[in-house]
Design a protein around this nucleic acid. Structure first.
Lengths: 134, 134
DNA sequence: ATAACAATTAAGAATAGTTATCGTTTTGAG
DNA sequence: CTCAAAACGATAACTATTCTTAATTGTTAT
C-alpha cells in the first residue's frame, strides 16, 4: 500500500536529474549528466522514460527550441522566456494575469474550437547575451 | 535597380503556394502541391526557399507541431490555435488585446531580459475533431 | 530458494525531418 | 549574346527521436 511511486533506479535517476534543474533541459543533457554516474545508460532509455513521465503527468514539453525538445517537471501553469542567442529558457514568475479571463471565450467563439490550455512564449535576449559582442 | 522582387519561376511558385493557404503548411505539403505542376521540383528546394523567405521577412515559423515545422506568410502579429488531434492550426482573429500592456515590462524586470516579441498558442480540439468518436 | 511472469533496460537499427554538398542549369545585367 | 552569379536537383549527411529485440532485473507465489 504505497501511494508513492516506486521507480527503477534508472528511472528515478532520470526523473531526479530532470527535476533538479530549472534550465528546461533536452533529453541529451539529461543523458550527459547521468552517463558518468551510470555508464550503462542509453539515450533511448532517457527518451522513453521522459515519455513515461509525460504520460504520468510528471513532466511536460516546453516546446522545441533550436531543433531540440525541452522538458520541464514544473507542472504549474507558467510562461517562459527563450533567449534567441543562447537558447536558454527562463521561467516567468507567476503572480500576474497574462491573458484576460474572457480570452478563452473569445477564441473559442471566433475559432469554433474547444480550448484546453495555452502557452505564452517571450522571445528576446538574456542579460548575459546582451553583454556579448557578436 | 528594381524595388520589386524578381523571383525565379520555382521560387515564385513556392512562395505563391505558401501564401495561398491559411493552413500553416509544412514544407512537404508545399512540395506535394507543386510536384504535379513542376515535376522536376525537389524537396530541398522548398526548404531552401522557405529559409530565404524567412531571411527576407516574407515568412515565419509558427512552431513545430507533431514533429514538423509549420510556416506562415501572414507576418502580422496574431495568435494560433492548434488542434491536438488533427494538428490543424487556426489563426486567431486579431481585435482583442491578449496580454496586458505592462506585461513586457514585468517580464523584463523579473527575468532580467530584453523581450523582442512573444507568441501565444492555444491548444485544444477543433470542431471537426470534437464530433469524431475515437 | 526457486520458478514463473512482468517490467525495464541496452544497443543499435530504423525512421523522419531538415540541412549541406556538389556538379549542372538557369537567370538576367551588361 | 555573354558570362558570372544565383538557383537548382539529386542525394548524401546529419540530428533528433522512435522502434525492435533480446537480455536483465524485479516481483510474486509457491
Amino acid at each position: 500500500m504505497q501511494a508513492k511511486r516506486n521507480f527503477s533506479a534508472k528511472r528515478e535517476a532520470i526523473y531526479q536529474t530532470l527535476a533538479s534543474t530549472k534550465t528546461h533541459p533536452t533529453a541529451e543533457w539529461v543523458y550527459e549528466q547521468l552517463k558518468p554516474k551510470i555508464p550503462d545508460l542509453s539515450l533511448g532509455t532517457v527518451y522513453r522514460n521522459i515519455s513515461v513521465f509525460r504520460e504520468m503527468g510528471l513532466a511536460k514539453s516546453v516546446g522545441v527550441v533550436n531543433g531540440q525538445e525541452r522538458f520541464d517537471t514544473d507542472m504549474s501553469k507558467h510562461s517562459h522566456f527563450v533567449c534567441s542567442k543562447c537558447f536558454k529558457i527562463i521561467d516567468v514568475p507567476k503572480g500576474k494575469n497574462f491573458v484576460d479571463s474572457n480570452i478563452y471565450e473569445y477564441v473559442e467563439r471566433e475559432c469554433k474550437v474547444k480550448i484546453e490550455n495555452h502557452s505564452i512564449m517571450f522571445y528576446g535576449v538574456c542579460r548575459e547575451c546582451e553583454n556579448v559582442k557578436d
